[in-house]
Amino acid sequence: MQFNKPLKQGVLRKRYKRFLADIDFGDGHITTVHCPNTGAMTGCAEPGYEAWCSDSENPKRKYQQTWELARDFNNHWIVVNTQRANTIAGEALQQRTISTLADITDWQAERKYGEQNSRIDWLGTCPDGSHCFVEVKSVTLAEGEYGYFPDAVSTRGQKHLQELIQMRQQGHRAVLLFLVMHSAIEQVSPAAHIDPKYAQLCREAANAGVEFYAVKSSISEQQITVDRPLTVNLPGS
């Protein structure tokens, strides 16, 4: 995924009210921008981090700029705009960059499925005509080289795992794809210390045949692409 126009670089002063961040672009005043990340953003939004923002060029928007990327004090890149995750994953799936899913075709985004009328991030067709359901989760919580998901208790994430189990029971492939969007992370685990129920459901899902993969992103102010696979450490494995 390439950014259509150059991002504007500044320094983060603070993130607040979940959706707002104050950025110093060095022009003599502080600019409030939209923060498209509703998560805890632990370790991703410290004052003083470098920040890159896109410009909507829409004068009707209250906050015209959107916070896209951060770089921490150790020069690690972080994708702040987690809404980019599905696009990045989708490009990799369609280009067959992810080897474990390279035989799947006809990828479609945001298709309704399941008993609760949810939307799967990506739906593909397997060689035997069955479907492949892929749920994408962006991972930005880093503790050293270890990455964790979620960064807060996620009832929505728990529901997605239960629905993937149902799809597997119906004979389809069901995949949880952790998209790592923090350059420090080299392996991924469900965050049992944050959401033990989610971690337990990951183990139940794996036992039911749900597949778990993690891929690392290559991040710069020009583009974000899928780089290479990482290890997923599931509870009890």
Rank of each mutant, 00 (worst) to 15 (best):
H29K: 11
H29D: 09
H29W: 09
I30E: 00
T31E: 15
T32K: 04
T32R: 08
T32S: 11
V33D: 05
V33P: 00
C35K: 08
P36A: 07
P36D: 06
P36N: 06
N37G: 05
N37S: 14
N37T: 06
T38H: 09
G39Q: 10
G39F: 09
A40H: 05
A40G: 09
M41G: 06
M41Q: 13
C44H: 02
C44E: 10
A45Y: 06
A45V: 15
E46K: 14
E46A: 14
E46C: 11
P47K: 02
P47I: 03
P47D: 04
G48R: 04
G48V: 11
G48F: 05
G48L: 00
Y49N: 13
Y49V: 07
Y49W: 09
E50P: 05
A51F: 06
A51T: 10
C53Y: 00
S54Q: 05
S54W: 01
S54C: 13
S56C: 12
S56Q: 13
S56I: 09
E57D: 13
E57S: 15
N58H: 03
P59H: 08
P59R: 15
K60D: 08
K60N: 13
R61G: 03
R61V: 10
R61S: 10
R61F: 11
K62A: 10
Y63W: 14
Y63F: 13
Q64V: 14
Q65C: 15
W67T: 15
E68K: 08
L69Q: 05
A70K: 04
A70E: 06
D72I: 13
F73H: 11
N74M: 10
N74A: 13
N74S: 14
N75G: 07
H76W: 02
W77A: 11
V79F: 09
V80E: 11
V80Y: 03
T82S: 08
T82I: 12
T82Y: 02
Q83H: 13
R84M: 11
R84L: 12
A85K: 15
A85M: 12
N86R: 09
N86A: 12
T87N: 12
T87A: 15
I88N: 01
G90H: 10
E91L: 10
E91G: 11
A92H: 02
L93I: 07
Q94M: 15
Q94E: 13
Q95L: 08
Q95R: 12
R96I: 04
T97D: 03
I98L: 12
I98C: 02
S99L: 08
T100G: 00
T100K: 03
T100Y: 02
L101E: 01
L101S: 00
A102Q: 09
A102N: 08
A102E: 04
D103F: 01
D103I: 14
D103H: 06
I104E: 03
T105N: 03
T105L: 01
D106L: 14
W107V: 01
W107S: 06
W107R: 14
Q108M: 13
A109I: 11
E110I: 04
E110R: 01
E110W: 01
R111D: 01
K112N: 06
K112C: 06
K112A: 05
Y113Q: 05
Y113P: 02
Y113W: 11
G114E: 00
E115N: 07
Q116M: 01
N117E: 02
N117P: 02
N117W: 00
N117Y: 00
R119P: 03
I120P: 00
D121C: 04
D121G: 10
W122F: 10
W122V: 09
L123M: 13
L123S: 04
L123R: 12
L123G: 03
G124E: 04
T125M: 07
